[in-house]
């Protein structure tokens, strides 16, 4: 059993035993190869369901909202950033949550792996020394973990949890690559090219709202797309309606999005949702020196103002 899994179980057991929490939210083995699935543990007997592997892709922070129980949560670097934002936005209270932080080396992109296998059925998956060994009836495939990470894991800037109550596993080196290289490339294109790209992506959208629902920061009691009176937005899958949905959502999470990538991993049709989110995140970083979810103290820029804020966007009278 991997060391991290063992430690998670030990911690969960003692937290429940000592009645420090009512619930531990973590991951258990999924029902398909390359999948782990969220798991809710309330009793000591259930603790051995908990696992940790390269498929723990969900951002569990989404389950913290509107919960009365005292909760311990397994959290990767990005998940912790989301928890920080949720605390700052008064959606959860810090003393209600025990953060079991895990330095994360990125999660495997199951869809990329499946594309390589071209329908060959996986029967057994083992992880060893940064490699993923897949075995099926008539094949064995060894994949390097770093080449099959989710795009959000490749641009991750905080693999190590920024706050935690307990840390499981050794800290990992942060990535040194420029996280916004793709955004810079996107910005360099002409307005027409950018629009063409985004529209092509949005056109694939089927309005299932998996992106919104997987996003822990999309917690509005009534989402603007769900309002029928007034209907803020058309409900069809026409280009204009899907574009408005994505544009509005991007603005709603601007300066708050922690770039965890949960939206994109949840999307069944592969829409590049993060492009806009990351463009806005970069703008917020450049303009306000603010990076979401990395400090409990720093004030969220779009939730405050200063009398001398630059207002170059205002039209002079």
């Amino acid at each position: 059993m991997p060391e991290v899994t063992k430690k998670i179980r030990e911690i969960a057991r003692s937290l429940l035993q000592e009645k420090k929490v009512d619930l531990v939210i973590g991951f258990e083995q999924g029902t398909l190869p390359l999948r782990a699935t969220p798991c809710f543990v309330r009793g000591e007997k259930e603790v051995d369901r908990l696992v940790w592997d390269s498929f723990c892709e969900n951002n569990l922070a989404t389950y913290l909202i509107k919960r009365a129980e005292r909760v311990a949560i397994i959290a990767k670097g990005c998940d912790v950033r989301t928890i920080v934002e949720l605390i700052k936005e008064n959606q959860i209270s810090r003393d209600q949550v025990v953060i079991i932080g895990i330095p994360c080396q990125g999660m495997f992109d199951r869809r990329q792996v499946e594309a390589v296998l071209q329908g060959k059925e996986i029967q057994e998956v083992t992880e060893k020394d940064g490699q993923l060994i897949l075995r099926g009836g008539s094949f064995k495939e060894t994949l390097k973990r770093d080449t099959f990470l989710y795009p959000s894991c490749i641009t991750c800037t905080h693999r190590n949890p920024v706050i935690y109550d307990l840390l499981v596993g050794d800290p990992v080196p942060e990535l040194s690559t420029d996280p916004y290289q793709d955004v810079e490339e996107f910005e360099a294109r002409s307005a027409e090219e950018r629009w063409e790209y985004l529209i092509k992506e949005f056109t694939r959208c089927i309005r299932c709202y998996a992106c919104r629902n997987a996003c822990p920061l999309c917690y509005c009691q009534e989402c603007f797309v769900d309002s029928s009176s007034p209907p803020w937005i058309g409900k069809t899958t026409d280009e204009s309606d899907t574009a408005i949905f994505h544009l509005m959502r991007a603005f709603h999470v601007a300066g708050r999005c922690t770039e965890c990538g949960a939206c994109e991993r949840a999307c069944p049709v592969g829409v590049d949702i993060r492009k806009l989110n990351r463009k806005l995140a970069r703008d917020v970083k450049e303009r306000f020196g603010y990076e979401s979810g990395v400090s409990l103290e720093q004030v969220t820029p779009l939730a405050t103002f200063k009398p001398d804020d630059p207002e170059e966007f205002m039209v002079n009278p």
Binding site: P38, F40, C208, A210, R212, N213, A214, A266
Partner: peptide, 13 residues
């Protein structure tokens, strides 16, 4: 259903 996100993937697909 505790882990269900409430999205429409299952129904639309």
């Amino acid at each position: 259903t505790e882990k269900c996100l409430g999205c429409g993937v299952c129904t639309y697909l």
